[in-house]
């Protein structure tokens, strides 16, 4: 399964980015092979509007099924839901800690938008 973690840097010890659509990078982890790659989200960071839905599209096209992030707005939530991407909530920490917490089943799911739309 492909897992995406929103992050502020491209290293395993980079702090996670609690913003979804405007996260600096997405760290994509293949949980079967352990392979990792970093996707630059400059388009989302600089988007005039709709960064969240664009991020959902990017992840869906990469075949991501699960995303770990801080907050999700209402429009991103509908796009993630349509793409059948499951969201788990992060409070902070590093990319590595986030992925370990997810593997250990310690993260709660985020089934609804938890912040308001801002565009």
């Amino acid at each position: 399964m492909k897992l995406a973690i929103t992050t502020q840097g491209s290293e395993p010890n980079s702090p996670v980015d609690l913003r979804f659509g405007r996260a600096r990078f997405f760290c994509i982890v293949d949980t079967e092979t352990g392979q990792q790659m970093t996707v630059d989200n400059a388009d989302g960071v600089n988007a005039v509007q709709g960064a969240g839905v664009q991020a959902a599209q990017t992840l869906a096209r990469l075949g991501v099924q699960t995303v770990l992030t801080g907050h999700v707005g209402p429009k991103a939530q509908t796009a993630l839901q349509a793409a059948k991407i499951q969201v788990y909530a992060l409070n902070g920490g590093t990319v590595e800690q986030a992925s370990q917490a997810f593997m250990a089943g310690q993260l709660r799911t985020l089934d609804a938008a938890d912040v308001r739309g801002h565009w």
């Binding site: 839905v53 096209r61 429009k75």
Partner: peptide, 18 residues
Amino acid sequence: RFNAIVCLPEQTLVYDEL
């Protein structure tokens, strides 16, 4: 350029407000 339309693998969504 306004991200009002997103193309997901199985569905294309429109955000009227954008």
